[in-house]
Design a binder for these strands. Structure first.
Length: 708
RNA sequence: GCCCCGGUAGCUCAGCUGGAUAGAGCAACUGACUUCUAAUCAGUAGGUCACAGGUUCGAAUCCUGUCCGGGGUGCCA
């Protein structure tokens, strides 16, 4: 949407109202139909005549030709268009390049073309990054920061009142695991720097020890083999069966919904009190029939993906044995040592730490505070280096208590319901699964805190819109959060938006601490800065100050990372290969930055431009026109990026602008222009181009460099 | 099972509110540095837009179905 499309639409609407057309289309209707030709040789705006053909019962081409003549006749006074012409079924409008230059270039260079759009009186909170303390910060987290920070900048420019928020995970099981390992097993030195990363290492080692699939293929203590004695249909419920299983010298009756087993089969049986799928198996009543324990599906005992099909052991398997022992991994533990005991011992260790943390025991709390700060300090360094801004930081520890009370409050109000001893929201009216908010043991969940956090955002920060930048694996979770907030009566719940994004994966697959192929942020940072320094900036050693070389290397590294992270569809995974990212030319951040540096170096050798001396009509070259056409689009691209939460649009834009510029650079010399006045006009154009590139880069969080 | 997301050149990706000949980068090949910075530019080659129907004057784009890949699916975060 710009001045020309409005002008075109107005004129077309006017002509259409007259004979012989006599069609009453509003200016907006026409503007809707108007399009930008994919090939710029077709002009700047095109009006397709297909839709009119039916109503007028004439061929689109004839209508186009007639329409072109009449609009042309009407616009004889205006010098806005150099050509209005029908091509087949289209009416093509070519904007006069000097007309455009006259309004566009001064607006950019001397006017407010690049300033923030008018205030929308809409406060939007963008929550992003959300790192966990006691865990490593890796390249995947960097994508989130790049996205969130760019969104903050873009929305702000588009006129929103933006609060950039962080939500740091400083409580929970991962911390207990980290501290458990650190206290129980670690005997080495504590490093002086990068202590956050060190904690990440502690956490990773803890996870390795707690990965019981390395000890047994079925890490489920309390689940034993049992023989099926009888199967009878359930009297009241079609999908259920009453199964009697015998293990050891006991026979138990179980109500079971699984399939794929028969009398005589040996199946996994979880006794009352054991734990399957994270919850304790208890005596339950299924439609009037008592069930003692459960018969487990493949998935429930980690032996397959099917959640309905009951796992069946070979017929010669011993009955009444722990399945974890039967399926133990050879060599993982000495044969004399019990897998079950080892699993239980390690789990107990972690849960003792977790419990102590929740009870606020002094010693462990001190350790928590101290180590938490190590991580926080490291995050600060990372954000500072990346130039990411936060206006407010929430901590999970701040909302964990309030979350529980909010849930209880809304349980009493009848908004939330009790189910199987736990509390949650019934979202079946929205065709969403039940949303668990408080565990049956009364402890909170991630969801509990999210509800309290949202309440805080609405009530204390008075936000109108709330954006959550969180990876796509949590899409369902946020749908549930927002619907629950709606049930709780928050009017702004509909204005919450989860911005999902894909993972950063390696060519060989996902990053995983188990495979040990995680690329830490610090590694990315170091390798990138190093490559840029040695490959590109070494030629300036001695010429530039050491400070400038360092500063430039950092900015170019940031440009590489952020542009690389943002120039993808949000939903898609990014395949990350460090060597490619450090060496690639072409569609990259440095390509765009290089275009800016070229402009800066030309301008540095020219005199200051006098606004009154610019003769815009001299800018007639095709490549110059392409650049100007692109420049004019800047505001609408940024606004669209803000509305659709797609910083990528800004990347695509600034890349094509840089490409247009480089083409112009080859064809239209500035310093060696034929005449002095042409030099001035071109200088003004490249100045405007440079300013737009710089602003666009700034909006994706990248600082341009004057030379590189 | 159900829900969500994706499938475009050898590779990595744009294009998706329907519109003119489906575009970039990388890799390959050809050419351009006595020239405002070659981190560049000009060119060659590379396509059954997963598949099949449907809607339409017109479909990579919208609808339906199928296949393939990823994610999620009540006591993890």
């Amino acid at each position: 949407m710009n001045q020309y499309s409005k002008l075109v639409s107005t004129e077309i609407a006017k002509v259409l109202r007259e004979t012989p057309f006599e069609l009453d289309l509003s200016v907006d209707d026409v503007m809707q139909l108007l399009e930008v030709p994919s090939d710029s040789s077709h002009g700047d705006h095109a009006f397709p005549c297909f839709t009119l053909a039916k109503q007028l019962r004439k061929s689109p081409a004839m209508i186009a030709s007639d329409l072109a003549d009449r609009v042309q006749a009407q616009l004889t006074e205006s010098d806005a268009f150099s050509q209005i012409k029908s091509v087949g079924p289209y009416v093509n409008f070519h904007v006069d390049s000097s007309h455009r230059a006259k309004s566009l270039i001064p607006a950019i260079v001397f006017g407010d073309f690049l300033s923030r759009r008018p205030d929308k009186a809409c406060r939007v909170m963008v929550e992003y990054s959300q790192p966990n303390t006691h865990k490593a910060f890796h390249v995947g987290h960097t994508r989130n920061v790049a996205l969130g920070d760019a969104l903050v900048r873009i929305c702000e420019w588009a006129g929103y009142d933006v609060i950039a928020a962080n939500y740091i995970g400083d409580v929970g099981a991962h911390i207990a695991k980290c501290l458990w390992y650190f206290r129980t097993f670690y005997t080495g030195e504590i490093p002086d720097e990068r202590r956050g990363e060190f904690l990440g290492e502690m956490y990773t080692r803890a996870v390795e020890l707690l990965d019981f699939s390395l000890l047994t293929r079925a890490p489920h203590p309390g689940v034993v083999t049992a023989r099926v004695q009888s199967i009878q249909p359930h009297p009241n419920k079609k999908n259920l069966q009453i199964v009697k299983v015998e293990s050891g010298n006991q026979v138990n009756q179980v109500v079971c919904g699984g399939t794929g087993f028969a009398v005589g089969d040996i199946v996994p049986y979880a006794n009352v009190g054991s734990r399957v799928g994270g919850r304790i198996v208890s005596v339950a009543d299924f439609e009037g029939v008592e069930s003692n324990g459960m018969v487990c599906s493949e998935k429930e005992v980690s032996l397959g993906d099917d959640n309905l099909k009951i796992f069946v052991f070979p017929n010669e398997t011993l009955v009444g044995e722990e399945i974890a022992e039967i399926l133990r991994v050879d060599g993982a533990l000495p044969p004399t040592q019990s897998v079950i005991k080892e699993i239980e011992k390690r789990e107990r260790g972690v849960s003792e730490v977790l419990h102590a943390l929740e009870q606020g025991e002094p010693e462990i709390t001190e350790l928590w505070k101290k180590t938490r700060q190590w991580s926080l300090d490291e995050f600060d360094e990372i954000y500072e280096w990346l130039n990411a801004r936060f206006d407010h930081i929430f901590y999970e520890s701040d909302v964990s208590d309030s979350g529980k009370s909010v849930v209880k409050e809304f349980l009493e109000k009848g908004v939330l319901v009790k189910s199987e001893g736990a509390i949650g929201a019934d979202l079946s009216q929205f065709k969403l699964p039940f949303f668990l908010l408080l565990k049956s043991d009364g402890t909170g969940l991630y969801s509990t805190k999210d509800i309290a956090l949202a309440q805080l955002k609405f009530e204390k920060f008075k936000v109108d819109k709330s954006v959550y930048v969180v990876d796509y694996s949590q899409s369902l979770h946020f749908q549930q959060v927002f619907k629950t907030l709606g049930l709780m009566g928050f009017e702004k719940a509909d204005l919450c938006y989860h911005l999902p994004y894909g993972l950063v994966v390696l060519p060989e697959g996902k990053m995983s601490s188990r495979v040990g192929n995680i690329i830490l942020f610090s590694e990315l940072q170091e390798r990138l800065v190093d490559t840029i320094r040695t490959q590109y900036l070494s030629k300036y050693e001695g010429e530039w100050s050491e400070d400038e070389i360092n500063a430039s290397a950092r900015r170019i590294a940031i440009g590489t990372i952020k542009y690389g992270m943002l120039n993808h569809d949000n939903n898609k995974n990014i395949v990350f290969e460090l060597t490619e990212w450090t060496s690639r030319t072409g569609n990259t951040g440095p390509y765009v930055m290089y275009a800016y540096a070229r402009i800066a170096s030309i301008l540095a050798e020219l005199d200051e431009i006098d606004e009154n001396e610019i003769q815009y009509e001299l800018l007639t070259h095709e490549t110059e026109n392409d650049v100007m056409r692109r420049l004019a689009n800047f505001p609408s691209v940024v606004c669209e990026a803000a509305e659709s939460y797609q910083p990528q649009l800004v990347c695509v834009y600034v890349y094509t602008l840089a490409k247009d510029f480089n083409r112009m650079y080859e064809n239209c010399p500035v310093k060696q222009a034929e005449t002095e006045s042409l030099r001035v006009a071109r200088a003004a154009l490249i100045k405007a181009t440079g300013m737009v590139i710089k602003k666009a880069l700034e909006l994706i969080g990248v600082e341009a460099v004057e030379r590189m």
